[in-house]
């Protein structure tokens, strides 16, 4: 019985990984992935950072958080509507694999995309701009939990039954862009009014920014334990809601 279970789980993991690898090969270089995953966060960063007096090394946590946020959450909304339009998503649904594994494969593709892009500013910052990592554990937690939460957020939004990435990206951006302004990305949380600080605590991006700052020795408002806890709650929430919404879609099919 135990063997049957472990072989079932290992099979699901293998299939999820195969789906993730296929998505990486197929969708990472698609224009919407590049546009919303790379160009968008870098442009936003440049438009806000040019002219600020803060040293570049201090701004790297902001860029890392933004790329984690946008890149990780963009893969699901690019992949799933495109596959729905080509009916290749049906191929997964007719394969002997659970919906959970299909969505985990898609989530994994988002995690690797987000984390892979976000590690570049860290490495460039360390090599050329004196950026330092004080807590490798905090950086690891920041990358892992944030890319997982944001990728799951993208998968959850991809349950919107659209057939083009734009149909999912538009409502997703209604959530993503306002979060930039309440998450301490450009305005420190301590400078926000009290009610905004409470709202800010509810934003997952706040905790990504805080963990990235903490990892590089910067100040944090909520502290790493709360950051990790809240991000973990968001990971579970987005994953469960994403699966729930996709099952609801299947009922409507």
């Amino acid at each position: 019985m135990m063997n049957a279970h472990s072989s079932h789980y290992s099979r699901e993991i293998r299939v999820a990984w195969a789906i993730a690898v296929k998505d990486m090969r197929t969708y990472y270089t698609k224009p919407p992935s590049l546009m919303f995953g790379i160009l968008f966060p870098f442009s936003l960063f440049l438009s806000f950072s040019i002219g600020t007096k803060a040293p570049l090394a201090a701004q790297i946590p902001i860029l890392v958080s933004q790329t984690l946020f946008f890149a990780s959450s963009s893969i699901g909304p690019v992949v799933i509507p495109t596959e729905r339009a080509n009916q290749t998503f049906d191929r997964f649904l007719t394969s002997p694999v659970s919906l959970l594994s299909i969505l985990m494969g898609k989530t994994l593709a988002g995690i690797i995309y987000g984390a892979g892009i976000s590690v570049i500013p860290v490495l460039v910052g360390m090599a050329f701009f004196g950026f330092q990592i004080i807590s490798l554990g905090a950086l690891f937690a920041c990358f892992l939990l944030s890319s997982l939460a944001f990728s799951a957020l993208g998968i959850m939004f991809a349950s919107i039954p659209g057939q083009t990435p734009g149909q999912v990206m538009m409502p997703l951006n209604f959530v993503r862009i306002p979060l930039l302004f309440i998450s301490g990305v450009y305005t420190p949380i301590r400078d926000l009014p009290t009610w905004m600080q409470a709202v800010s605590m509810l934003s997952p991006l706040t905790h990504t920014v805080e963990l990235a700052r903490y990892a590089s020795g910067g100040e944090t408002f909520f502290g790493p334990i709360l950051n990790v806890t809240i991000l973990t709650i968001y990971v579970a929430t987005f994953l469960l809601m994403g699966i729930r919404f996709h099952i609801m879609n299947q009922r409507k099919e």
């Binding site: 293998r14 299939v15 195969a18 296929k22 191929r91 997964f92 394969s95 694999v97």
Partner: peptide, 8 residues
């Protein structure tokens, strides 16, 4: 090959 992987 990808189909084969989906069927493990």
């Amino acid at each position: 090959i990808f189909t084969g992987k989906l069927y493990d």
